[in-house]
Amino acid sequence: MKINVKINGIKKALDVSPDEYLVETLRNNGYMSLRKGCDTGSCGMCTIHLDGEAVLSCVLISAKADGHEITTIEGVQEEAKDVAKYLVDEGVDQCGFCGTGTIMSILYLEKCVDNPTDEDILHYLRGNLCRCTGYAGQLRAIKRYLEAKNDEGSK
């Protein structure tokens, strides 16, 4: 079946099968940033934004995206780079496989919450699993990123 979507601002008509999931559709169309970690909606690695809301592309049937706007990290490279710098600086990039999903959740958090507390950060990111870092360094990095952005904004 055909679906009409906007991916990272560009209109696309995609051919999908009725039982295809969005993570596959997007990877098949060259959006390689999407990582598949679990197949059960449990790990957060395939997180994208659908009409601005963070969703898991591995449990979302592609047809559901028809008429909607999809954002992958390929579409927010500058914003992602700003966050990534802090994660890399803290050494919590590690294997990187969960990193793109984590960054998409951080960008969603920023959109939803002004001046997020530690609790907000954990709440918005708890669906993003990471086996390498133990999370503590990620929290340090995210806080530093948000602080820096706040400083920037208040200038």
């Binding site: 990877r27 390689m32 940033s33 992958t72 992602a80 990534a84 890399v88 050494g91 990039d93 793109t100």
Partner: peptide, 21 residues
Amino acid sequence: KSISKKDGMALLQGKPLYTDD
């Protein structure tokens, strides 16, 4: 010295670098 990983930025920005990519 706490030098940053050489591949970190590319990995986190979602570049196609893993096997299946």
